[in-house]
Amino acid sequence: MKTAFFQAKFENLDSIREYVGLGAKDAGFNDSDIYAVQLAADEACSNIIEHAYGNDDTGLLECSYSFDGEYLVLTFKDYGCFFDPTSVSDPDLTSSLEQRQIGGLGLFLIKNLMDDVQYESHGEAGNVLTLKKRLRV
């Protein structure tokens, strides 16, 4: 398993995407799935930065990835507020321009781009979001 630490701020999203992109590339994912992994990681970290840490940009974001030959497993750990992304309902994707919801899109993307999404809170020991993506051969 490889792990990197990032300060929880939006300007680090570029580095986070690059980091998980390397993991997906090393695992043998095709370009389309590498992009999917990067997009899901971006959405996950954007939510953590915005919701778990709010305006505190000194928070820590721990990103790890591993590959077991079948699944690339990404984990994102934070020590901010409890926020369970799996509890958020899907946005209405058919509503008109005026009615269209602004929030919830990131989570919807994560759930649709990845094969498995899990969230655990360990109180002061941190919150862990685990995303899995299967290697398509």
Partner: peptide
């Protein structure tokens, strides 16, 4: 690359 943050910006602009 464009994340949902970009989609939201385009939606509000539209």
């Amino acid at each position: 690359f464009m994340s949902s943050a970009g989609f939201r910006t385009m939606l509000l602009g539209q």
